[in-house]
Write a protein that binds this DNA or RNA. Structure first.
Lengths: 174, 174
DNA sequence: GTCCATGCAAATGCTTTGCACGTAT
DNA sequence: ATACGTGCAAAGCATTTGCATGGAC
């Protein structure tokens, strides 16, 4: 097995692990082996994942955790705002790191399920303005563009989605 | 019972009913009494509703439909783009009219569950630009601001949400 | 030693489906 | 007459929960 350098920034001071431990301590919760292992798995790389993805990764790395514990741990990570969850219309929820990440939005490819993040300060500013105008206190927002990525345009599924979309536009025009 | 004027625009030429009937005809599906009644109920007023909301309205108006049929009808209405569905993190999906409605976004009050729509041509344009830059074909997008509405700021639940949010911001600052 | 965490299996909540019967075309 | 649609009950799926046991503090 070749040596693989890993930064493990999540274990450094100010990293996710420290935040998590502080959060647990504050409320008398315990840092168990299951929680430590899940935390490492989750924060070793930055990605979007479903509960099942994570469960599969656990099995792959011989980490024994039940789904119950897995969900319970995800729930804590949401509570302490280390993770956020999103619904991309696939049944299961997607989780992603947000600590230390600036606000961002997603493009979701309905063919490959690939997720691409993008940022836009202009949109951020516009959303703040809108909330202000409406008198809302914004606790967060979620913005997703659904569609077909460049790589998937020429797949059968991609072509089908595009054809269907164009047919609907014709309908709308009359 | 006082007389109530109802425009019933959905029954006029070019309205939702016509679109729906054409869609059914095109694929050899049938216009049944259940479907007609559901259609009227749905398009008589513009709102956001869950499958359960709709089911309750049916019972209130003595319309006898099973949930199976209700879901099957919603599914057709999604297919022909008369409705769109959204996930506001409440478990059940929300449905809304989109035919003849311009693109719009939502504010969702986490206290009262009230939904407010807003539009922004600027955001629309920015999203088109982003999709273009990334080489994506956009099939649609969904943008929701979650938070606390003006009316709910002074409720116990509103205050709790706000306090919690501010506590987290303090945490993040260190 | 005291709580909290865990795994398991059962429960939940929303939505979908199989099947025998009913109905629009 | 021929599909397609319906209600019912059962199944599905992601997620949550009750409970007896195990582990962190």
């Amino acid at each position: 097995m070749p040596y693989r350098y890993q930064k493990q920034a999540h274990r450094e001071p100010g990293g996710e692990v420290e935040i998590f431990e502080a959060y647990l301590r504050e409320r008398g919760l315990k840092l168990t082996s299951a929680r430590r292992q899940l935390l490492d798995l989750i924060f070793e790389n930055h990605a979007h994942f479903t509960a099942d993805d994570l469960f599969d990764q656990c099995r792959a790395q011989q980490i024994r955790v039940s789904k119950a514990t897995l969900y319970r741990t995800l729930s804590i990570l949401l509570d302490c705002k280390l993770l956020a969850e999103h619904d991309f219309g696939q049944g299961a929820k997607y989780y992603e790191h947000i600590y230390g990440h600036r606000n961002h939005y997603h493009f979701f490819c309905n063919v490959s399920k690939k997720i691409v993040e993008f940022r836009s300060e202009k949109i951020e500013r516009l959303l703040d303005e809108v909330a202000e105008e409406l008198g809302f206190l914004s606790l967060g927002h979620t913005l997703t563009i659904f569609g077909v990525s460049a790589e998937c345009r020429d797949t059968p599924k991609g072509r089908a989605l595009i054809a269907d979309h164009e047919a609907r536009e014709d309908d709308a025009r009359g």
